[in-house]
């Protein structure tokens, strides 16, 4: 397969996996929890490397998921103590876990295949060279792993669509009809963690966070319907992947960074030009309203 195509497909799969989860995070106002979780999985990856000397996807994902759950539980516990606001709880927990990971990397795993920079920036340019043979065809390993994650995320939101929707928009109501909002929220964050880890090697932490938050926030500016929002989010992610790849080739710069920039540019466009919520649209509505009231003549009373 063509190397460039592999890179774009891998990035697109990341965009899809993240795009399926991102809207729920943005709507639940826990977008930053995804940032925290994707940083907090680092010690999990390191621990798996230290214990098992392996970077095979399954154990790494299990270790990372364990730390993601730990992170969420710790944040929950801090918040529940009533002593710390939720933003400060997030800001306390994830740097601590990330520090553990950094110390593990620099102290125990120095010089081996666990490179800190690549977990942050990712080296998507190398994904075409790391291949596995599947049914006689050579495919990029990252693409296989990410495809599995996309399917898992798709299954999660397809099977729990109604439940996720209800708990996202009205947690109190869903609690009264026994939809277990906390459990669903945990499940969502575990899915975020698994996605983050699977995507780490390929695209790095920063693109994962970007793909989870920015396309979803962009789509949120453009529509009011959840289904449309999920679709738009995945679409915007793909635009970022394709255009970002082009730009990175042109500028000879980080591919993941360029993809993130394209997503951010999409957000700015939507913020300024959204037909529904942009300043232009709002000014227009304002004017029509002004004309309406003017046309209605002086108010009685």
């Amino acid at each position: 397969m063509n190397d460039d195509l592999v890179i774009v497909v891998v990035a697109g799969l990341v965009a899809t996996a993240c795009g399926l989860l991102g809207p729920f995070l943005v709507l639940r106002r826990i977008a930053l929890l995804s940032d925290a979780v994707s940083h907090a999985v680092l010690p999990g990856i390191v621990a798996v490397w230290l214990v098992g000397q392996t970077r095979a996807p399954l154990p790494v994902i299990a270790g990372a998921a364990a730390f993601a759950v730990l992170c969420v539980l710790a944040i929950d516990a801090l918040r529940a103590s009533g002593l710390v606001a939720s933003d400060a709880a997030i800001a306390l927990v994830f740097p601590a876990l990330f520090s553990l990971g950094v110390l593990g990397v620099t102290h125990f795993a120095d010089g081996i295949h666990l490179d800190l920079d690549s977990t942050i920036y990712g080296e998507i340019a190398f994904t075409p060279f790391d291949t596995v043979t599947l049914g006689g065809v050579e495919v990029a390993r990252a693409a296989v792993v990410l495809a599995v994650v996309v399917l898992a995320n798709l299954a999660l939101i397809a099977l729990l669509w109604k439940e996720l929707k209800a708990t996202t928009f009205d947690p109190e109501f869903s609690a009264t009809v026994r939809l277990r909002p906390r459990l669903l929220s945990r499940l969502l964050l575990v899915a975020v963690a698994v996605t983050a880890v699977a995507a780490f090697e390929a695209v790095g932490a920063i693109l994962v966070v970007t793909m989870l938050i920015v396309p979803a926030a962009t789509a949120y500016l453009l529509t009011d319907r959840l289904v449309v929002m999920v679709g738009l989010t995945v679409g915007i992610g793909w635009i970022g992947a394709v255009a970002g790849h082009r730009i990175a080739l042109g500028l000879d710069s980080s591919i993941a960074g360029a993809m993130g920039l394209v997503c951010a540019a999409c957000f700015v466009l939507a913020l300024v030009g959204s037909p529904r919520y942009g300043p232009a649209a709002r000014a227009m509505r304002h004017r029509t309203r002004a004309v309406d009231t003017a046309g209605a003549g002086p108010r009685p009373g």
Partner: peptide
């Protein structure tokens, strides 16, 4: 202030946008 986007998403968008820009500049 623009209205629709909540603080957490605003923070996330700015964070990832600027950081992406930084990574691009860094590799450049």
């Amino acid at each position: 202030r623009a209205g629709r986007i909540r603080p957490d998403a605003a923070i996330g968008v700015v964070l990832s946008g600027f950081f992406s820009l930084g990574v691009v500049l860094l590799t450049h």
